[in-house]
Nucleic acid binder design. Structure first.
Lengths: 230, 230
DNA sequence: CGTGTGATTATGTATGCACATATTAGAGGA
DNA sequence: TCCTCTAATATGTGCATACATAATCACACG
């Protein structure tokens, strides 16, 4: 039963912490103690405790020992899925379709945002992402041509705009905003639902250092749910 | 300069990947190769590469080797705020109002979920959270009385149900699901908006080991946005 | 009595080794 | 040709050991 892997050891110790064996902020046994208790090497205990420290369950200090973190941080590590993976994980075929590609003025909501400026030349792209040919998400995106000039002449081929960007331009910071939007007539038609439908909406803006790279809005049809664990 | 720690090695390899030494999706040298090149043990290379894998920079498969991840996944660390903090941070006064408190049968969507069972006795609570007296969010919650029997007779006082729970019952696992919901007549009235309005919706369910603790749904009025950075 | 200094101690990390495990290429057979 | 089984191989993991590093404590010294 006790395989003495660093994983099982980590879970064992986590369980004891959750069960309240030690007070919040209290010192827990040292690596050597656990190693003796579980009959394994100190190296293994070290790996287990380091993992718990990275998770924020415990705090460790040299010479100071390991203690239970006073305030368990309600933190979730959330992976923002790539649309292609999201679709393919659910066993559907992915395809994306470029609806519009042009150079258009920025909408004020973005132009007034951090770093863009109203004179900024930007490419505007609309993409419909499909899962087994049914609409999965609709994307509106602006790309700052001052930061990514090569986009103006880029051939995307099979890639979505996001995939193209991500391969070519790293970013250093991003802001995400989730909300709900009522579909207007056009969105309703595109997503094969009706005007007024409640659309889960993800807004994302990214920067390379201080220069804006791209801003996008993604609309999902009503059935969509964005799941993660804490 | 070359301290040959797993950290410095990790950064060195990261730099080479970012510099484009290998194509996206391409196989990079094996652990043994790096170990020879940098003059360190394979164990050390292993740690470095495992860290990069956790970060999502590379993908590793046994026998398959290590390759640059085709699309680097953006990861976000997201803190789920307590409603009180959320309201008070925006400079408003927080108040919550118990609308309903009873023992009610579970809706099928929850009863069929993991671990609840249809016979389960559960408390049902509805709470309206207010910011400066205006509706901020509406909460519907079920609490498993098998796991938290003391809730049945608990006096909440000024605390919200969530605050009471968080102080008394730890949880080991939680699942969150975000979506958009169209308001029905009642929700529209409670949140001071209209029927059909698009409501940002957060669903959360938590377990203590394998026993369900609580399930709740939170509806936010249309203007609400859930922001975070990556 | 305050202070600096060295001993003590818990964690951090590198190493060499052995073996486990997943995956794939290729050999062998129907 | 196609399938199956086996061997080869890259990563995954555990262990014993040695030494590094940071924080703390005790003790001697001014």
């Amino acid at each position: 039963m006790n395989a003495n892997t660093h994983r099982s050891l980590r879970e064992a110790i986590r369980a004891r912490i959750v069960a309240g064996e030690w007070q919040l902020g209290e010192l827990i046994p040292g690596e050597a103690d656990f190693a003796r208790e579980y009959g394994c090497a100190r190296t293994t205990v070290n790996r287990a405790l380091q993992a718990l420290a990275e998770e924020g369950i415990v705090e460790r200090k040299r010479r100071g020992g390991t203690r239970v973190r006073p305030l368990p941080l309600p933190q979730a590590s959330l992976r923002i899925p790539l649309l292609r993976e999201q679709v393919e994980e659910s066993g559907c075929g992915y395809r994306c379709e470029l609806v519009v590609r042009t150079v258009a003025p920025l909408p004020p909501a973005i132009a007034n945002g951090h770093g863009w400026g109203s004179e900024c030349r930007a490419a505007y792209i609309e993409t419909l992402h499909r899962a087994d040919e049914r609409p999965f998400a609709f994307e509106m995106r602006w790309i700052n041509l001052a930061t990514v000039p090569e986009f103006e002449t880029a051939e995307l081929g099979e890639l979505s705009v996001n995939e193209w960007l991500v391969r070519r331009v790293p970013f250093t910071r991003g802001e995400v905003s989730l909300s709900a939007t009522a579909a207007d007539e056009r969105l309703g038609a595109i997503l094969a639902t009706h005007e007024g439908a409640a659309l889960f909406t993800m807004n994302r803006e990214t920067w390379l250092d201080e220069r804006p790279v791209t801003a996008m809005t993604l609309y999902y049809p009503p059935r969509y749910r964005f799941d993660f664990t804490i």
